[in-house]
Each structure stands twice: as structure tokens, then as C-alpha cells.
Nucleic acid binder design. Structure first.
Lengths: 360, 360
DNA sequence: TAACCCACTGAATCACAAC
DNA sequence: GGTTGTGATTCAGTGGGTT
């Protein structure tokens, strides 16, 4: 990681100013919880003229030029510049601002991966009875570009959800009780403190240990707290000195998890590749041996170079498997079986034996 | 109600053309399920190699964001004109289009009342393990203007929800089984037929009996079906003759206002499943914490994704529990314990605490 | 009848490394 | 940058048929 960055620090400044001082393509992830009740006026910082013009062009399509859109465009443009090519961004909001955030993300070339619903298990009721209880907030997860491959720890998310795919709706409680930061007078320290559980899931899903996360609206520092706990690094930007001080104190008291427990469930795609030919070379399967389908109704014979032959079809275990099933594709490792005493065993178990010897 | 309107009829025309032929301020509610403008890649296959029947209809291919925005603007402008002063509008979409819909609604002076999440109890999974399961769609409910007082049947919603306020997230199944309209060849009649339970809730919440509902993208006629059942009137606009014919036949076979519908509407209320990972995210158990056997003679450590590690064994609380006991299975909730002052407490009691907060 | 197994399906921006 | 080969990847539910 670059050593000229303010790693694990909180910058006290307007977010666009601070972002402009950082170099291109330096962060792995941006997490942004922007305010939507801005007290806009003369105090709002505007970027330099060239950038305003570039921004203007973007949302002539939208036809609305109010200060909130100008501000949103300015920090999103900077976020785009600061992200590495395969970086990702999360934004969170409510119906007051999330539609504008989503539209701008799309217009700027970000590529939406998911919108995610934070379904609050204990929302504030609607006292007037004039609407539905506002029981959720919306997050958008987007890649820097359409072709980017942002980090997604699919297997870890599946493990976290008891073995079934993590869905786009997350039921989590709001931040309350002991987690909620309080001032000396007992009042809450920040009006919109997010629960660490939310950031835990975001960071575990879309970053790796050691990654750098930028939060341009740092607030009470939940992003930094979760990042430190999970062995990620952060840069926080916060214009309010009191909030920054609270966040610093909060993060200082956190001790990170060890490397061992940060090693999460890995996808099979990450495992080393074993050519089928290795099994032949090692004598686990011999040239001339017969391989069987799961139900044994079709067979193929192994050739010395690790290809199969079955009727007119020859080629890799995958190609032959696909052709005899007339399927678009086939995983030969799980499709083909060898005969063992009294039954069949998939090639995959033989591959696992080789992998076992590799890791030791 | 005006007698020059095509009440309870389906107009076969392009939606903007048909809307322009209607007079100002004549409808109480607009419900719109516009094309989502999906941008799909090639073919998609399930892990069992079957092909996913994608939404590749010509009507969904609007083009780029600019074309989609022009189209959206045109019909939303007409919708605004057709609404009575205290009228309301619902739109539904996914992340592909919902942010643009929301932004335009706001820019045109509509006033958002709620965004509502349709949380699908049985969504299609993500077959390639590349993203979170797309398990919801988003609806926006808006008033014609900031000062409008659109109909909201608060008490009816509360009653429908077992006596507690209706939240902004609705768990309902997708349209399948006998409800799904089929052609003579057994194929689905419309690729995106919405469940009647969804429209039931929308109409019950934001219209009164006798009200007039306009649906400019009528499709298979779910809005008309729900309206007729609930004693509301509708005007449908659909440019596809086949869809219009299907909808006419469907609605003709419906008899209004039976109790039966209410039972259809109730979603199944099951005891919520709590993944062990939730305890980690919520900080009830921390990455690196040690878990103990009932008698404490064996231990495991918790990883950040909610899996355990004990010696060479890693995986879910159930899997690791079974492996270290050399048992075929294990209920990790009762097997593993956390240390509390002076003793041990099973994970099950922590899970019970979460259930407590969710069900109230 | 009940239990069980198998086939099929749903608004989806759905792989990736090596050559 | 395009092409090719390897091989990873699914949940809840309906409905039909068999045991």
C-alpha cells in the first residue's frame, strides 16, 4: 500500500476538498452515508470550475440543478477517481436521496451490482399513522465500471447465512443500547450512527483483509470501527471536529481480530488447478481405465494423455461429459466416477487427495 | 364518476397516446409497472444445465439511459396530468430502473410518501455465485403534490398486519402455481406477471371502494383483477393485443369482493431462521472468541464469517461440532457454549434473544 | 393416504484464467 | 484484446408420478 496516504486516520475537512488531495486509484472500496438534510447555502464548497462544467454536462439529462445534486455529483466524481480499477462503492440512503444517488451512479459509469435493503428489525414507528412504517434503508453496491470485477466473497456470505445464498435484504437491528455512542449528558453523540453489524457484512462481503476503505462522511466512525476489527484499513473524512474526536476515541479502543479468524470460507474457484492428466501421471487412474456416469449408464475410457474417448467423442473430461449429455457444459470432476469396491467414486475425491498433499 | 371515461376497459394503444386522450384530473390512483429495460448478456444456465427463460421481450428493450429517460418522462407527465389533486401514484421496478423513476417523480413535483420493498419469499437464486440473490423489488408510493392528501387506509393496513403498523417491507411470494396465467401450450402467458396479493395490498391501502385506478402498462391485467375483486374501477392501457385479450378473459372470470381473497393475501408467517453469522455481526459473539463443549473439554474459535475452526476442522457450528465428536450430525446451537461469569451458556440462548427482538 | 422422489420454474444487468 | 478451455454454480415451491 502507498505510504503517502493518511492510512487509518480521520481527515477533518469538507469531503470534496479532502478527496481532491488524494491520488488517483488509491482505495479498494468507498462506503458513503451522505447527509440528505444539508443546510445548503453559501457555505457549500464548490469544486473548481473545470470540474463543475464536467459535472454540469452529466446531469443536463436530469434537468435539475439544485445544490444537493451539485454536491452529490462532486463527491461521486471524486470517489470514482479515487477508486482502483476493480474497486467498489457502497452508498446508503432513504427515499429522500437514494434515487438521486442511484441515478448519478449510473450516469457516471458506475455499474450497479445489487441494491440491498437494510430491513430494520426494530424501526421507529410512524406516530401519525399517515404512512407505512419506514422500516428500511437502501444501500447500493456498484463497481467502478461495467467491466470491473469488484471483490465479492460469495462463499463467506453463504457461510454467514447458514449455508444458503445471502439475499439482497438484510434484517439487522438499528444501533442502540451499549453500541450507541453517548455524550457526557447522556444524549446520543451522532443522530444517524449506523450499526457495526451492517458494516461488518459490507466489509466482509466486498473487501479482503488489508484493503483500504474510504468513508467520506465518517460521522461517528462506524466504518473505521468495523474496518479495524476486521483487519481492513480506512481513511475517514469528517468536517465536524466533535464527531471526528468521538470517532478517534471509539476506534482507539478497538482491538482487531487475529489473522486466523479473518480467514473466511474460500470459494472453490480460488483453489489451485489440478489437470486431470496429473491423476494419470500419478497412476491414480491408468490409461485404459473405464470411467462411469453417476448412474453408470455411460462410460468413457482414459487415454494416456489424460483425454477421454467415448464413442465418437474425444477430449477433456469436461468436453466429453458435455457432449455425451448434449449439455452446454459439464464439470468432469463430479460427473465421471471410478469403480471402487462395491460402488463408484467421483474423480473429485481423487483430486482432493492431491490437493491434500499440496497444502501440507 | 365521469361517464365519458372507458371505465373497466382495456385500451389497446401505446400508453402515452392513450393517456393523452383522457381528460385532466380524472383518476384517483395510477399503478405503473413499466418496462425495466434489463440489459442481459448471453444465455444463462442453472447448475443442472437447464436454461433460464429470460425476459427478452422486445418491449423491454428501450435502449440506453437517455432513451429510457425520455420515455419515462413522457408517461409520468401524462400520469401527473390525469391524477386528481389528491391522487396518488405507485411505480414498481428494480435497480435497473427504479432510481430513474424516483428521481423523475421528485423532479416533476410528485411527493414521495414511502418507498416499499416487495421482499420475495421465493426469488430466483443467483446461479453463478456472483452477487447477492436479487430477492426484492422496489415500489414507490407518491402523492401528486407535496400538499396533496392521498388516501391511506391506516387502520385497514394495521388490521391486515395482525394489529401492528404495516411496515415498508412486504414479504410476499412471487406469482406461481395456479395463479400464473398459462397459454394453451403450457407456457407462461406473460413474462412478468405480478402476484395479485401485491396489488391487493396496494389498492386496499391507497384507494377506496369505487375509486378509479389507471394502469398504463396493463400486461396480464393483475391491477384490473385486484381492482374488480376489491370493488374498485380501472382503466388499463396495453399495446400488445395478445396480452390485452388474456387480461380481458381473466378479469371477466372474476367475481368481486369475496372473503376468499383475504386468505390469499396473508403471507406465511414462519419462525424466522437465524443464521449463526448474525450473532457474529451483532457482536454477541466476536471473531476470535472461543466456544466450548457442554463440559468444556473441547473448544473452537469463531471466524469473521460465522464459521468455526477447531484443529483441522472448519465450517458451520454444526459441521465442526459433528466432526470433533466423530458424530454423523450435531446441533451446534445446543452443543456449543460461550463462557459467561462462572459458567457456560449455550448459543441457543443467544439466538432466543434475537428472536425476541424480531417477533415483537 | 401419506411419503417420497424427480422434474421444472421464476424481471438476471450471473466466470475467469491462460494463451 | 479476443479466443479457448476449464470447471464452478441454486432456493422455494409446484406438480406429477411412484412406493
Amino acid at each position: 500500500m502507498r505510504d503517502d496516504l493518511p492510512i487509518d486516520q480521520i481527515i477533518e475537512a469538507e469531503c470534496v476538498d479532502a478527496m481532491q488531495a488524494l491520488p488517483d486509484a488509491c482505495v479498494d472500496l468507498v462506503f458513503a452515508d451522505p447527509p440528505y438534510n444539508l443546510q445548503l447555502g453559501g457555505e457549500l464548497h464548490r469544486p473548481d470550475n473545470s470540474r463543475v462544467n464536467a459535472v454540469d454536462a452529466e446531469w443536463d439529462q436530469i434537468g435539475n440543478h439544485d445544490d444537493y445534486d451539485l454536491f452529490t455529483c462532486a463527491w461521486l466524481e471524486e470517489a470514482h477517481r479515487l477508486l482502483k480499477p476493480d474497486g467498489g462503492i457502497w452508498v446508503i440512503g432513504t427515499y429522500h436521496n437514494i434515487f438521486r444517488l442511484g441515478t448519478f451512479l449510473q450516469d457516471m459509469g458506475f455499474w450497479i451490482m445489487n441494491d440491498v435493503i437494510w430491513r430494520k428489525s426494530n424501526p421507529m414507528p410512524n406516530f401519525k399513522g399517515t404512512r407505512f412504517t419506514n422500516a428500511h434503508e437502501t444501500l447500493i453496491w456498484a463497481a467502478k465500471t461495467k467491466d470491473a470485477k469488484p471483490t465479492f466473497n460469495y462463499a463467506a456470505m453463504k457461510a454467514l447465512n447458514d449455508g444458503v445464498q445471502m439475499r439482497s435484504d438484510w434484517t439487522l437491528p438499528i444501533c442502540s443500547g451499549g453500541e450507541r455512542l453517548k455524550l457526557a449528558d447522556g444524549k446520543k453523540a451522532h443522530p444517524t450512527q449506523k450499526p457495526e453489524s451492517l458494516l461488518h457484512r459490507v466489509l466482509l462481503a466486498t473487501t479482503n483483509p488489508g484493503d483500504l476503505v474510504l468513508d467520506p462522511f465518517f460521522g461517528s466512525g462506524t466504518t473505521g470501527a468495523a474496518a479495524k476489527r476486521l483487519g481492513r484499513h480506512f481513511i475517514g473524512i469528517e468536517r465536524d471536529r466533535d464527531y471526528a474526536a468521538i470517532a478517534r476515541e471509539r476506534i482507539a479502543s478497538i482491538s482487531p481480530a487475529t489473522r486466523e479468524v479473518l480467514t473466511v470460507t474460500q470459494s472453490k474457484r480460488a483453489e489451485p488447478r489440478i489437470p486431470f492428466g496429473n491423476l494419470v501421471e500419478r497412476g491414480m487412474v491408468k490409461p485404459g481405465d473405464t470411467l462411469y456416469c453417476p448412474r453408470g449408464e455411460r462410460t468413457a475410457r482414459v487415454r494416456a494423455d489424460g483425454t477421454l474417448i467415448s464413442g465418437r467423442s474425444t477430449g477433456s473430461i469436461h468436453k466429453v461429459g458435455a457432449e455425451i449429455q448434449k449439455a452446454p457444459s459439464c464439470n468432469g470432476w463430479t460427473f465421471w466416477h471410478v469403480r471402487v469396491r462395491g460402488g463408484f467414486q467421483p474423480l473429485d475425491t481423487l483430486r482432493a487427495q492431491i490437493r491434500e498433499t499440496m497444502t501440507v
